[in-house]
Computed example of a mutant assay.
Amino acid sequence: MLFVAQAGLALVRRVVEIVLILLVAIMLGTVLAQVAGRYLFNFSIAWATELATFAQVWMVLLGAGYAMRMRLHVSIETFVEMLPPLVTRLIMVPVALLCLWFLWVVFEGGLLLMEIGGMQTSAALQISMQVPYVALPISAAYFALECAIRFGAIIFGGAAVTTGGGVRVD
């Protein structure tokens, strides 16, 4: 059972990495096409800006979970580092619960926004606004997964609270 969970987690993480790379490529390609169209051919691609914006929204939201996985979020650990390990782990419980609660609120809000988005279409691409809005619940769920893994490792003693001052050192 543990192997299946690890394989599933590895698959989810790999999919997120590939999607992030594709989103950067979409942003780069559409912005370059728009610039080339405007300045070389005197022609504006109406949907390019909107597509790049939607790709950026998806990339930022999914990237937050990826940053959690890679320990790239800013954190202030000076006080916590001075505490005994048991106290540190106890302090991390409410911190983890608050983080997960916030992500739950984002998840629920994203679902509500998707309902509204089902009645709207985007201006240039003419797609349902559910497409960009679904980024909220998906990214909140992924972020919560990475958050639970990271905080769980700290709380149950599998990892130290320190991350090198918020900068990766490995």
Rank of each mutant, 00 (worst) to 15 (best):
G157T: 07
P132I: 02
F3I: 11
A135H: 05
A160L: 10
M92Q: 10
G117W: 03
V87E: 04
T162C: 09
E77N: 14
A7W: 08
I45D: 00
F79L: 09
A135G: 14
L100M: 09
R13C: 07
L98W: 09
W104D: 06
L145E: 02
L40V: 15
L23W: 01
R168V: 15
G118N: 11
G157P: 09
A33I: 11
T78H: 12
W104F: 10
E77Y: 08
V15F: 15
G110V: 01
A64W: 03
F156Q: 05
T78M: 07
P84N: 14
L112S: 15
A10T: 11
M1Q: 14
M70V: 06
V95Q: 03
R69E: 08
F41Q: 10
Q120M: 14
V57A: 02
G157W: 14
G8L: 12
G37V: 05
V35S: 08
I21C: 10
Y142G: 02
A124R: 00
P84G: 08
V95R: 01
G152T: 00
Q6L: 14
A33N: 09
I116K: 15
S44Q: 14
V15T: 15
V95F: 07
G157L: 12
I155H: 08
T162F: 11
L112H: 15
A46F: 13
A55R: 01
V167G: 03
A5P: 02
L23V: 00
W58G: 01
F3W: 13
L2S: 11
G8K: 05
R38Q: 14
R69H: 13
I149H: 01
V169T: 13
T162S: 13
S128C: 08
V134F: 14
V106C: 04
Y142S: 01
C99D: 02
P137T: 06
R89Y: 06
G63M: 04
V60G: 05
I127C: 00
V161K: 05
L11R: 15
G152F: 01
R71L: 06
W58T: 02
V24D: 04
Y66F: 08
V57C: 01
E146L: 00
E17Y: 10
A67V: 05
A64E: 00
I154V: 13
G157N: 09
F79Y: 13
I127A: 02
M119K: 15
V167I: 12
R150D: 04
Y142F: 12
S139K: 05
M114C: 11
E146F: 02
R71S: 10
L90N: 15
R150E: 06
V35L: 09
I21Y: 07
G109Y: 02
A46K: 12
A52C: 09
A64T: 07
V80W: 03
L100S: 00
E77S: 07
L136V: 09
E108A: 07
V95P: 04
D170P: 06
R13A: 03
G37I: 04
A52P: 03
A123E: 14
G110Y: 01
P94N: 04
L103S: 06
E17D: 13
Q34F: 05
L2Y: 14
I149L: 10
A123W: 11
P85Y: 11
A52D: 06
G63F: 05
E146H: 00
W47I: 07
A52V: 02
H73F: 01
A7S: 12
V93Y: 10
W101G: 13
L100I: 10
I127H: 05
